[in-house]
Design a protein around this nucleic acid. Structure first.
Lengths: 386, 386
DNA sequence: GCCACTTACTTTTGCGGCGAAAGAATCCAG
DNA sequence: CTGGATTCTTTCGCCGCAAAAGTAAGTGGC
């Protein structure tokens, strides 16, 4: 393996907690940090000093409140130097690689995509290598690479099984490290998106958080105590076995009335085509449904009820503080959001805490960004968990 | 408030973790404890010394392995002195109080029940007081009382709302403390059962654990990271809104096809009576179903499918390591367990980890024991969380 | 313009908990 | 009886923290 910069610096547990808190919580004064981390003011001085000296943190010129009832010595907020390091995130699909460069804060500063000439591991590694070369030229201070792939990933480095790439046990992290000389983290794409949302997105700071992705398939991510829960059937088509409506439609792709049959884009298109004989894109179907065309409207309504049922069940059993709907197949919410919320209401106790439901139509660059966040977590902060 | 012995002794965090580990993990040597708690051998000597001196722990005469490949100085297992303190647990129903006395290990050493002359708070407190007097005579060294009631309990002391007792905002803990002079913990009965199972029962040491109780109603308890998750609709009939089968039976008690309609004892009896015109006990219905009587068999089969669906959904979304089915209404599993497991299988991914499903028919003394465990947690170990 | 007051941060100091390492205890094997 | 193995105890020193005192930098009263 190439010599690797390991973690940025050997961060003590105390320093790490400060770094993460500032990274996730925006600029924070030392006093505020002391309160949040339950430490004394003196400890904060001690912990922040090396972080500032190393360039990870800087004192920023007091953004806060303009000139209210503030009194006493002004606080001196600290912030991470987001640009001090850059990260690359790749999302590998069966025919494309989508790439982004992000800051330490996971803000996307560049995008770069390329078609995949072949699915052979060597070809994929070479494509990733060339893309990294190109990006490295424009973005110095690269600290690491994160790669998201659909399929089963082991130890954040080996692609154990990826049906669409037709890979088995490919040590992708090692190969790309050899090619690029940068440390590499590989993860399942849904897992990466979930981690990204947990750290920097909708799930920031939450104890119980669920991500449901709808696209070509169904993805499910569960975050408990700030940590993502891994599970055996991850990314192996479990949504085909979630029976939402036993009398629902039967499609070639899943059990009758399963979440896959009812909700995924290919299966919604299949249903409409089977009924009308015409092939339509997902967007066309949504448009027709919104315009009141009976058949697409019926399919979309049924999907919305299925989604509402799923969300209600998750809400009832997992008691999450928030559920994020992501992926390309959540456009549904714009057309039939009312049906979804009504279905949820019908299957929840009136006194139950209302479900905080967030919708985020994500494109492939969001998936790539998720992979970059993995790299940030592992490489800079040395955090295997949060 | 009566002078209260507070925690047994002021336990340092380190001492507390040792005490809990030994309490839950049986006799353990210092070396074993050092490994489990990730401490050095020296620390264990330091931490165990005061615990032994105070009488909470003792060295026991080496139960373990007979004479195998053991070499070197024999280990000196430590165990809690289970009898060093006794605890009372009460389960209050609308017409009865069920009481138990337990050891520190939550082993039941005595049972004592009494009918409730009235639901007035004063009468209930007096009944509890007299029962405590009786039990105290036979069991010295009482350290505290735990009380489980159906309904909403706040701060482990005030009964906020209990429909069947017709109470609102009764400071039960305070009243019983005044009457008995012992520290008192009050908790919702399901919550107490869940805590007991988490500490001493089926959920011992698990990260994710679910308890589903079936009886007069449906109870749900979620344990994540070893801690029970509280929720707003707790014990307020949420099961009426879990729609398991939209085409299921309609009963006076819940929405069509809800878990309450399909699974609870009163609703199963209602269904059988509505169809056959004859009133039957739950046990009779189970017997008839087992004997192949069509109508009861149909109701029980439908209930079993509903239970299987619920368990599968919980398994899919919560990913628990274990699900405990408890209460008086799980006799179902003996008659139609096969249907339940088949339904679960149909709605789970083949690669998913099989659900560890445990069934425990519990009586009222198990509920009372749960309340006693709460007292152990709070009063002895000063643990608001595990 | 001076001074009291407030709040933020830094420095100093002391203590508690922990690990490392050496030593004592207690077994087994030859 | 000696040497090895394992557990437990003792000693020692370090690290990390809090407490407290000191310094810095602002506001407002007079």
């Amino acid at each position: 393996m190439t010599p690797v910069a390991a973690s940025w610096l050997p961060l003590s547990p105390g320093e790490r907690s400060v770094a993460i808190e500032v990274l996730l919580g925006g600029p924070l004064s030392r006093t505020e940090l002391a309160r949040r981390l339950d430490l004394s003011a003196g400890s904060l001085t001690r912990l922040t000093k090396p972080l500032i000296e190393s360039g990870l943190l800087v004192e920023v010129p007091e953004a806060g409140v303009p000139a209210e009832a503030r009194q006493g010595r002004p606080s001196q907020p600290l912030d991470v130097v987001a640009e001090s390091r850059s990260f690359i995130g790749f999302k590998v699909t069966e025919d494309m690689v989508y790439g982004v460069v992000t800051t330490l804060r996971s803000e996307i500063v560049a995008r770069y995509d390329r078609p995949l000439p072949s699915r052979e591991p060597a070809a994929v590694v070479e494509t990733l290598g060339e893309m990294t070369d190109t990006l490295a030229a424009a973005h110095p201070r690269l600290a690491g690479i994160g790669i998201g792939v659909g399929g089963l990933v082991e130890d954040r480095s080996v692609v154990g099984e990826s049906p669409f790439l037709e890979w088995r046990d490919v040590p992708l992290a090692e190969l790309v490290e050899e090619r690029t000389g940068l440390p590499v983290v590989v993860e399942n794409d849904v897992a990466a998106l979930v981690e990204a949302e947990t750290w920097f997105g909708a799930g920031r700071g939450l104890e119980r958080f669920v991500v449901l992705t709808i696209g070509a398939g169904i993805g499910y991510g569960l975050v408990l105590g700030g940590k993502r829960v891994p599970y055996a059937e991850e990314d192996r088509g479990f949504g085909r076995h979630w029976i939402v409506d036993p009398n629902g439609p039967l499609t070639p792709d899943g059990a009758r009335g399963s979440a896959v049959s009812l909700l995924t884009i290919p299966n919604i298109r299949y249903q409409v085509q089977a009924a009308t004989g015409r092939e339509r894109t997902y967007e066309e179907i949504l448009g027709l449904a919104a315009a009141g065309e009976p058949m697409p409207a019926r399919v979309i309504e049924e999907a919305a009820r299925a989604l509402g049922t799923l969300v209600a069940q998750i809400g009832n059993f997992v008691l999450p503080q928030k559920i994020l709907l992501a992926g390309e197949g959540v456009g549904l919410m714009d057309v039939a959001g009312k049906t979804v919320t009504e279905t949820i209401r019908a299957q929840r106790h009136p006194l139950a805490a209302p479900i905080d439901l967030e919708t985020k139509v994500s494109d492939f660059h969001d998936w790539a960004r998720g992979a970059a966040v993995l790299a940030i977590q592992v490489l800079v902060l040395g955090a295997t968990d949060a």
